[in-house]
Write a protein that binds this DNA or RNA. Structure first.
Length: 490
RNA sequence: CGGGAUGUAGCGUAGCCCGGUAUCGCGCCACAUUUGGGAUGUGGAGGUCGUAGGUUCGAAUCCUGCCAUCCCGACCA
């Protein structure tokens, strides 16, 4: 198999595909738009899940599981929600197959469902239908539930991890007695996502709110984290929605308050998906392959022996086994690759491609000098270091790599937030520099729509820490009270 | 769903215009020599040419339908 990766400069899209395929993260399946996540890719997703799951539980949430299928009628109960998802739903209409007598398996038309089932594109409807039975009093609130699940959205055009017809995600669905409490929850989860993105994925994000055009179908307010990829395009990495009482009203979920009055329940929902894999790949990787931040790397350190003959290998292995024990004791995941079927150079290239943060090579020379050779993936710098105190050195190096990856991505991101003060400047920036463009906007959906049609750029978000500043909209010339972030996006 | 391209061994390909049962490289298997950046040699295995029809004595090649993938649009986490 050729391990050549297309360079980012030559063809960014092809580079991305090459990384996913050649680092063995995922591959296309026999089903259009659906991917097989391979062990190397799934291991990273599992680490993401573990970290996020703990974060959710530490903030009082519990996991549960709701059905894959949703009765069609549920969708029509919330008007804007159905409008948002109707065009991309997989629908189950029958429940049986039969042999047609010619050896073909066909749908048994007599086994038609009375009511079609929708394969969930998101679970608000089935969950709120369920919550109806769980909530009578303020004493039943809040409900703080998360589920890990797959969802299906019949996308026209798919890309591995970034947009697949079926994807894995978590969706939190909470119910509250007051709007304030629900908004607080919405914001809390946004900050958890941001914390995760920055401190684990090492991807800096802008925390903000969506413009009405970009809001989730059925939400009163959508908060998001927006990341910037190496080609200057933005990627929405997570969203947290304040749903108001929309779903409670649609599914008739009421509770009696302390004051004895009946009111509809307030809701939030929030989610991140396997798209985070795409963010991780595109934010850090280079032309040699994947670069995984140490805190999410399934293998943090790989050790490659360099030897001549069994005796040589035995000596190296005895040192490596002892080192491995110490590293594992410090919580470092280590792989000792003593395969005799591949040569060292092959292994070096392979682990580089797969993004293992630290590689240690040990040969006879090192045993004599009491050293090892350490190569870090993020900078590709190699150096010889003493065996003395190596375990502590590695732990610190992993931390440094994590920090360095974040700093590098942050520097790139900050360099690519540019202010535009006229529409001409705005258009020019999009074509020359890309990235986020900070510009005044008159606050109307019409203006946003026009800009989108003319430039393909959308408002990614209105940053939470935005300064209010009088200005004029770059498109309409009408007064504006603040700048918002525009970008072309995935 | 519109535009463009592609589909030949696990992967990448030649052959297609001009019809005669498939080329090369990587990978794979065996053995030997090797091992500090993707080893070398020798021998070997592997293909109903995406799929279904049609034309023809004969189809990878010509014609038609279908399927899939990639890129660019519209849609979206």
């Amino acid at each position: 198999m050729s391990k050549e990766i297309t360079s980012r400069e030559a063809d960014y899209s092809q580079w991305y595909n090459d990384i996913v395929i050649k680092a063995d993260l995922a591959e296309h399946s026999a089903v259009r738009g659906c991917m097989v996540i391979k062990p190397n890719g799934y291991a990273i997703w599992e680490k993401m899940q573990a970290v996020l799951d703990k974060m959710f539980k530490d903030t009082g949430h519990q996991n549960a599981y709701f059905p894959l299928f949703i009765p069609k009628s549920f969708f029509s109960k919330e008007a804007s929600h159905v409008e948002g998802f109707a065009t991309e739903c997989a629908v189950v209409t029958h429940y049986r197959l039969k042999n047609d007598g010619n050896g073909n398996i066909v749908v048994d038309e007599t086994a038609k469902l009375e009511e079609e089932l929708i394969v969930r594109p998101t679970s608000e409807t089935i969950i709120w239908n369920t919550y109806k039975g769980w909530i009578q009093s303020y004493r039943d609130l809040p409900i703080l539930i998360n589920q890990w699940a797959n969802v299906v959205r019949w996308e026209m055009r798919t890309r591995l991890f970034l947009r697949t017809a079926e994807f894995l995600w978590q969706e939190g669905h909470t119910a509250h007695a007051t709007a304030e409490e629900a908004i607080e929850e919405t914001e809390r989860m946004l900050h958890i996502y941001a914390d995760f993105a920055e401190n684990w994925l090492a991807v800096p994000v802008v925390r903000g709110r969506k413009s009405p055009n970009e809001r989730f179908a059925g939400a009163l307010d959508t908060y998001c984290i927006e990341a910037l990829m190496q080609d200057g395009k933005a990627l929405q990495a997570g969203t947290s929605h304040f749903l108001g009482q929309n779903f409670a009203k649609a599914f008739d979920v009421k509770f009696t308050g302390k004051d004895g009055k009946l009111d509809h329940v307030w809701a939030t929902s929030w989610g991140v998906s396997t798209r985070l894999m795409g963010a991780l790949i595109m934010a850090h990787s280079d032309d040699s392959g994947l670069v995984i931040p140490p805190k999410l790397a399934p293998i943090q350190v790989v050790i490659v022996p360099i030897y001549k003959g069994d005796e040589d290998l035995a000596k190296i292995s005895s040192y490596v086994n002892e080192l491995t024990m110490r590293l594992k004791g410090l919580g470092v995941s280590v792989k000792y690759d003593d395969r005799d079927t591949q040569r060292p150079g092959f292994k070096f290239a392979e682990y580089e491609l797969k993004g293992v943060p630290v590689r240690i090579a040990i040969g006879g020379r090192d045993l004599e000098n009491k050293t090892v050779e350490i190569a870090r993936r993020d900078t590709k710098v190699k150096q010889t270091v003493p065996q003395e105190g190596l375990d502590i050195y590695i732990v610190k190096l992993l931390e440094e790599i994590q920090q360095n990856m974040f700093n590098k991505a942050l520097a790139y991101r900050d360099e690519h937030i540019t202010e535009a003060n006229s529409y001409e400047e705005f258009q020019q920036l999009l074509d020359t520099k890309a990235g986020f463009i900070s510009a005044h906007w008159d606050g109307t959906p019409e203006t946003e729509q026009k800009i989108k049609e003319e430039t393909k750029a959308t408002i990614r978000c209105i940053p939470l820490d935005n300064k209010l500043e009088d200005g004029v909209c770059i498109y309409s010339g009408k007064p504006s009270i603040q700048r918002v972030l525009f970008a072309r996006a995935y």
